[in-house]
Design a protein around this nucleic acid. Sequence first.
DNA 1: GATGATTTGTGCGTATGTATG
DNA 2: GCATACATACGCACAAATCAT
Lengths: 227, 227
Amino acid sequence: MSDFAIEKPVPYYEKLYHTIKKMIFEGKLKPGDRIIETQLAKDFNVSKSPVREAIRILEKEGLVIVDQKSRVMVYQPTMKDVEEIYFCRMALESFAVELVTRIATNDELDEIEKTLMHTEQAIRDSQKNDTIITLNELFHSLIINYTQNSRLQKQLNDLKSLIYFFRVLNTQGENRADNILNQHRKIFECIKRREADQASQAMINHLKLDLEHLTEILSNSYEETKL
Amino acid sequence: MSDFAIEKPVPYYEKLYHTIKKMIFEGKLKPGDRIIETQLAKDFNVSKSPVREAIRILEKEGLVIVDQKSRVMVYQPTMKDVEEIYFCRMALESFAVELVTRIATNDELDEIEKTLMHTEQAIRDSQKNDTIITLNELFHSLIINYTQNSRLQKQLNDLKSLIYFFRVLNTQGENRADNILNQHRKIFECIKRREADQASQAMINHLKLDLEHLTEILSNSYEETKL
DNA sequence: GATGATTTGTGCGTATGTATG
DNA sequence: GCATACATACGCACAAATCAT
């Protein structure tokens, strides 16, 4: 096994890209916060060049925005943005699940089913929210991965990044976890019965409900979030 | 009309991004060509910093790729890539047309119809291929725009960029322009009759045929293009 | 093959211009 | 206006890869 992987030294701009992204996900940089390249360069003991390159990538990804005066800030999705993103998710994921219904192997179906069972278990055990969220995301990821379309995966990953903050909000509410699980189950049943159209429709319904739920929660907390 | 647009000076990195992109579209930089930042910096009389930032954006967009040794090259789509991209287009555009069928105003329908008539005229007049290609693309653009979803527009724009080279190839062949026009007509008829599902299906069929046609042409010229 | 020269990418410090208070 | 903070861009230094001898 002469697998001498060439360990390519990761350049600073790439490391910084990941680091800044992580800081946004972890809330160390909040939506609307300014990003000062000088400051970041100082914090990480690097020059501004790699910081700027990292920012250009994040800008293209949509995670940071640059205003008229070239000031960089963390992306703050508007309600319209959220709707647009969900619309795209519906398009991509409904098509994906339709395809997967046709081509998935039985092993792959088992894998999805296992995830649903783990989720059920987690809810029953009153596991902390994070675990359940992760399992829910795994459900979607499995379907997307089974299409074996890497571009689709990338597109959906980027879309989800943009509303990452809301993943916790989305699980708030009475019996919310159970509701989501039931919707996932419905989708899975369609897949298992190899009913592509129904699976597709079930996915759209699921995402529509997700969006409605999110909309409601967000409009309730309008004052704080200033969407 | 006190429209004092603040003329924000466009920074070099942004200009360079557009310029390089244009060079790729115009074939001055061909798929697989190396991009030397030192060279570009010299050519445009700028330093390497803005060139590098432009490259990071293009890299994120997928138009250039960076190999293991950090060498930058123009993206060269593989057959698998083309299929993946078309798959995403099917998902997004079929969903888009479905929505548009439901919400488009009559004026908007007229606009689409007008485009089809212009195309017919252009074919009858044996206009040059470019005109017809532009009109065909306009057909798709109109539908996408009428969804009023800017993110969808951006996603599809980026996708189309990645296979921009093939737009000419796609119109090659016996009666190809007529065939495409007929498929567009079918889609439009569904929209006009407000039959959302049929419109969606017609769009998928259209793109499937496009992909098949492209696949055939590309596999014929396999030797030259090394896909 | 080894080795020196050249090309190229990575990253830094500094200068300049612009906005903000 | 003046001072500060910041983004933009440049030229240089260094290192790694490539090429020629």
